[in-house]
């Protein structure tokens, strides 16, 4: 199946690309990011991963959310300051 991903904070994800990824049925957001990291030849630090919050379309999602064909994953960044 094909899903797309868009990262809000480019400087945290280096060469991990925005766009479409072909992934197996049943892939989770965690799996998708694993595929994206592998393609980019990088490993995200725990600190960076802790910064992420997710939307699938406009719906809040989690690392373990199972994706469906056509899903658009938005990787936002945790913004907490004031």
């Amino acid at each position: 199946m094909t899903v797309t991903i868009k990262f809000s904070v480019r400087e945290l994800v280096g060469d991990m690309r925005d766009g479409a990824y072909d992934v197996p049925e049943g892939t989770t957001i965690s799996g998708l990011l694993g595929i994206a990291q592998k393609e980019a030849g990088m490993v995200l630090s725990e600190e960076v991963k802790n910064s992420f919050v997710f939307l699938v379309g406009s719906i809040p999602a989690q690392w373990e959310t199972v994706l469906n064909d056509g899903d658009k994953v938005r990787v936002l960044y945790k913004i907490l300051g004031g």
């Binding site: 945290l12 960076v48 802790n50 910064s51 992420f52 997710f54 809040p60 945790k78």
Partner: peptide, 21 residues
């Protein structure tokens, strides 16, 4: 709930600039 935006570990700290505030 919008808790998903705020829960868990802090993540990367980038500082707080005056014009962002």
């Amino acid at each position: 709930s919008a808790d998903f935006l705020w829960c868990g570990e802090k993540g990367v700290i980038q500082g707080n600039l005056c014009f962002a505030a």
